[in-house]
């Protein structure tokens, strides 16, 4: 038991290599978490992050196939935009279903997850993106063009941190500014509290909902593109699945604040990274970390309820 935990900690923070691995794991969680924070603050329940992460990766992969020789930085920028667009369009689609037909975004985003997952399965399993020359279907694409891999900040080989981490930090600052300081953020928070009053007070709430779904999906899409071009270099469902749902947990545990999401992403990134080492050292299944993720979320939700009860008692006291 003690050995498992100590190896978990060593695996997460024990060396420069471990630390870089933790930050690399935290990067996509943070991006998805930020997108979730923005949607959930508006009480728009986008839970299609899994699909949006895949869509971002797929869109960026597709872009990498047809972009010709471009200066390196421009090429990377195109891939970033493609990642944002892939996730954003999928989010927007759920938004349109809501504003046009009144479909609950909870249903539509989950259903779109399945469509995207099976589309990817088709493309990789006998479809046009399958790795050629293999006699067995590997359910993965060939490696991406090495010229298009995202720049590395620190480290090398298996333990390196790509520049998506900088993007994620930048996105954290921008999300915090957006929510707390801009008129759009004001509208997002107001929408979460009372959309009727917002509509009476001159805001086109359908448009706002579309903007929120677009931004929320785009951040998840960027996470997917970063994983593909910064870490895995091959399009594989296994490396991408789970990021979306972990990102939702990150947002919730982070108290629906960008800064909180950052701390939560670092925590869960460290857990995921340490889990690999823990399995090697102590034989403890890495799946335990997923269970811990769930438990942490449960405890945070219970704590949130408990705080609310506390506040209610005090506010009565002042009534």
């Amino acid at each position: 038991m003690a050995k498992a935990f100590s190896s978990l900690i060593v695996g997460a923070f024990g060396s420069q290599k471990a630390l870089l691995g933790s930050l690399a794991k935290a990067t996509p969680l943070l991006l998805v978490g930020l997108g979730t924070v923005i949607a959930f603050r508006a009480k728009i329940w986008n839970i299609g992050q899994e699909g949006q992460v895949l869509a971002g990766a797929m869109c960026a992969y597709w872009a990498s196939l047809w972009i010709g020789p471009l200066p390196y930085l421009i090429a990377v920028a195109v891939l970033v935009l493609a990642g944002l667009a892939g996730g954003g369009v999928l989010g927007l689609l759920a938004g349109v279903l809501k504003t046009r037909f009144g479909t609950s975004e909870i249903i539509s985003t989950v259903m779109l997850n399945y469509i995207v997952i099976f589309l990817l399965a088709y493309l990789l399993d006998g479809g046009p993106w399958m790795e050629s020359g293999a006699t067995v279907a590997y359910h993965q694409s060939p490696p991406v063009n090495a010229m298009l891999e995202w720049p590395t900040l620190f480290g090398q080989g298996a333990a390196k941190l790509h520049f998506g981490f900088i993007l994620a930090l930048g996105a954290t600052a921008l999300s915090a500014l957006l929510l707390e300081r801009t008129p759009l953020g004001y509208e997002i928070r107001a929408f979460g509290s009372n959309p009727t009053a917002l509509r009476f007070r001159g805001t086109d709430i359908s448009r706002l909902l579309l903007v929120v779904m677009l931004v929320s999906g785009a951040l998840a899409g960027l996470a997917g593109a970063g994983e593909l071009f910064g870490t895995s270099h091959r399009l594989r469902a296994e490396t991408l699945l789970g990021i979306g749902s972990s990102g939702i947990v990150v947002a919730m545990v982070g108290g629906l604040r960008p800064s909180g999401a950052m701390l939560a992403a670092l925590f869960f990134g460290a857990l995921k990274s340490g889990a690999i080492y823990m399995r090697l050292q102590s034989g403890t299944p890495a799946g335990l970390v997923s269970a811990m993720e769930g438990l942490v979320l449960l405890f945070f939700l219970c704590a949130a309820v408990a705080t609310r009860v506390h506040i209610t008692v005090r506010s009565e006291a002042h009534a």
Binding site: L177, R181, T182, P183, Y186, E187, R189, A190, G192, S193, N194, T196, A197, L198, F200, R201, G202, T203
Partner: peptide, 30 residues
């Protein structure tokens, strides 16, 4: 229901509907 954002303070509610007005902004920020 129609006039206020219940979770917002008095200050933010005073500009509800006018949150994009240049008068209440400095650059892109409130």
């Amino acid at each position: 229901r129609e006039g206020l954002i219940p979770e917002f303070g008095i200050a933010e509610n005073l500009v509800l509907g006018w949150q994009r007005k240049p008068e209440y902004r400095r650059g892109p920020f409130l």
